[in-house]
Amino acid sequence: MSDASAMIECTDVTKSFPNAYGLVAWLRHGGATPRRIALEDVSLRIRPRQLFGLLGPNGAGKTTMLKLIATLSLPDRGHIVVKGIDTAVDPDAVKTQVGLCTSEERSFYFRLTARENMEFFGALAGLGGAFLAKRINEVIAIVDLQDALDRRFDTFSSGMRVRLALARALLADPTILLLDEPTRGVDPIHADAVRRLLREELVGRQGKTVVLTTNILEEAWSVCDRVAILSQGKVVAEGAPAELSTQIGGRVRYAITFDRLSQDLIERVRALNGVLQADAGGTHAETLTVELVAGGRTLTELLRTIGANGTTVLGMRPLDDGLLELFRLTTQGKLR
């Protein structure tokens, strides 16, 4: 039964690829082409105005999922419905709703300039004339490539190529954006700009639906409304980032650096309610790594204790190990 409130609805999608080619492989497998399962019975509901993250280790099936939604691939079983349109029934109608940003660098014509590439893909998207010229300038400004617009694509760096791919996805102003690792190879400043663009402008203001694949856990946690973790072609966890974090026991870890770290302070911290672990060391000799129960007053009590000790805090930062642990546990099937 189709969910009318879903922008993208994937139901029991299974996708496999040939694992070996040629007559010998065919004969060895009794007259059938051996196949490798890339996605197995995957069901997802992505709502309008949602920034949905697909996470998973390499080969988990993230890009395959995007290509299925973009109609570049067909499922073995199951259905994918985009804005009420079955991708198997009317792929051309689906393509008018979707902007795809691939992570492959070779998706442009190397001997054409960025502008010439954008003119070509804009025309294939059905745009033209002065409007297309104006739109190219707009999307190129969004990804900060104005100065490179008339340069040949083969002179672009990896990060610039990814940003141009993002600009191409935005060109026809689609309702849905499918972004395959849109910050891969992009420098930190532009990567941050891309994340803010997604969160604040495209989803926040323009109300687009975005499906994002990424290997960067913090990226998914900081921008996504909802995340699905894929492992070996299956969804092993799905939910809002905060919900998923609580599944590892609601633990948070901080690294606190002092001007002088005493054993007495470590013992006082360990004695606090809600402190699960406190150990000296880490990147700096005067650094204390603490693991706390998330929420409650534990962090406040910890800071008060440190203050009462008369020690100066030089720095404090949250550690991402919690996310990494979550990722490890879910992809290993130890957490559902």
């Binding site: 001997r111 054409l112 003119e119 025309a123 294939l124 998207a125 059905g126 745009l127 033209g128 409007f131």
Partner: peptide
């Protein structure tokens, strides 16, 4: 001949697409 977002009607759009492919190949 254009509709929302500068998109052309189907026939006009197809001509535009064919022309874009022609121009791409000429440039290459």
């Amino acid at each position: 001949m254009t509709t929302t977002m500068g998109r052309a009607g189907p026939r006009h759009s197809n001509l535009r697409k064919a022309l874009a492919i022609f121009v791409r190949d000429a440039r290459l």
